[in-house]
Amino acid sequence: MDGGFSAFQFDHAIFAGRDLESMSDQFAALGLAPEYGGVHANGVTHNAIVGFDDGSYLELLSTVEPDQTPPRRERLIGETAGPCGWAVRTTALETAAERLRSSGLSVEGPVAMERRTDDGELATWECAFLGDCVPGTRYPFLIADRTPRSRRVPSSDSVRGTELTGVHSVLLGVSDLEQAIAEYERYFDLESVTRWTDADLNLEVGTFEGSPVTITAPLPENEWLTERLDRFGALPWGFLLETTDFDRTAARIPLRRWPQPFPERAGWIDEEFGVSGRLGVIEGA
C-alpha cells in the first residue's frame, strides 16, 4: 500500500455552523435532507449526515448548545464557516499514517473516537490528523471504522437510489498555489498536475489526474476567497457532488453552469453555504 490517494476512498466532507437545525433546513430545501447522526463522545458536538449510495457523505457539524466550546473547530463552527474539512477512508490506518510521517508530514494519532447514534448504538472509529492545522483543512484527515460503517454513516432517504451518487471532489483554498501543489505531490505521491485559470471565479487552479482534490488560490482581483483565507486560513471552500444525469439534477436543483476545461458538465448550486462556501455538481464519466 502506498501513501497516495490510490490507497484511500473519499469518506466525507464537513460543513460547520452554529445551528445544526438551520444548516439541515438549507440542505433539505435542496432535496438533500440529512439524517441526524448523534452526539459525539465529547458531549459538545453533534452532526447530521447526507449519506450517498457510494458510501461518502456530507457532515453538518455544530455544537449541541450555542454557548459550548467545541474541540478543534471552535472558530469554524462559531463563525459558521460552511465547507471546512474533509476525510479519506482507509483499512490500514497505522500503515498509512507511518507512510505519511516518513514523507515529512506530521501526524497525530491514531485517535480513538465514538458517537452514540440516535437509536442508541455506539459507533467507533479511529482518525489520524495530518499537519499542524485544524483537522481536515489544509490536508484531509484519515479515518478507519472499528464498528460496522453503517453505524457511523446512515444512508439518507433523500438521495438513496437517485442520480446523486456521492461526493466527487474537494475545492481547497490556499494562498500559495505552487507551495500547496508541491506539498500534495510530496506527501500523497500525486503527479500529472494540470494548471489553469478560472476567469469566472478569479482563481488559479491546479488539478491532479485521479485525485479528489482541486487546489485553488485567489487571483489579485478575487475578494471572496482572499477574505475567507484571511479569516480561516487554508481550507476547503467547496465540494462537488457526482451525478449520473446532470440534466435531471439541474431540473430539481437550481444550478449555475461552471465554465471549466473538463469534458464533464458541472454547475454550482445558486446559494452560499456559510462564509462564501459553495456546493456544486459534476457529471460522472
Results as ranks from 00 to 15, higher is better:
E178C: 00
Y36L: 14
T147S: 15
R152K: 14
L225Q: 11
L171A: 07
T226S: 15
G85H: 02
I14L: 15
R116C: 07
G233D: 03
L105S: 03
I14D: 08
A96N: 13
I181Y: 01
A123F: 08
E59S: 03
D118F: 07
D118C: 14
R115A: 12
D200R: 03
P263K: 06
T194A: 13
G161W: 11
S156L: 10
L172H: 03
A285F: 11
E163V: 13
A41T: 12
L60I: 10
V205H: 02
L203S: 07
R99C: 13
V44Y: 00
A29K: 11
P140W: 02
Q26C: 04
D189F: 09
D132S: 15
P218G: 06
S192W: 00
A128L: 07
A48H: 04
A128N: 08
P71A: 09
S62T: 04
L20K: 04
I77Q: 05
S211T: 02
M1D: 14
W224C: 10
G238V: 05
T63D: 10
S155N: 07
L122K: 09
L61Y: 11
R146H: 13
R195Q: 03
S106W: 02
T214H: 06
A33Y: 00
V159W: 12
V39D: 05
G131A: 05
T95M: 07
E227Y: 00
P212R: 04
S106G: 08
A285W: 13
P110C: 01
T216N: 10
L203I: 04
R248K: 14
G104M: 02
D247Y: 10
R116L: 12
L171Y: 04
Q260F: 11
S158P: 01
W125P: 08
A16Y: 12
L190D: 04
T117W: 11
N202I: 00
L122D: 06
P218D: 06
F188L: 03
L279P: 09
F239G: 07
L241W: 11
E271Q: 15
E114R: 14
L241V: 12
R160Y: 06
C127I: 15
F5L: 12
S62G: 09
V107R: 03
E264V: 05
C133F: 10
V167E: 11
D145M: 11
A97T: 02
L171R: 11
A112V: 05
I14F: 13
E204T: 05
S156Q: 06
I253H: 01
D25K: 14
S150W: 05
T137M: 08
G161R: 08
L142C: 06
I77L: 12
F5R: 07
T69R: 13
D245A: 14
I14S: 08
T69A: 13
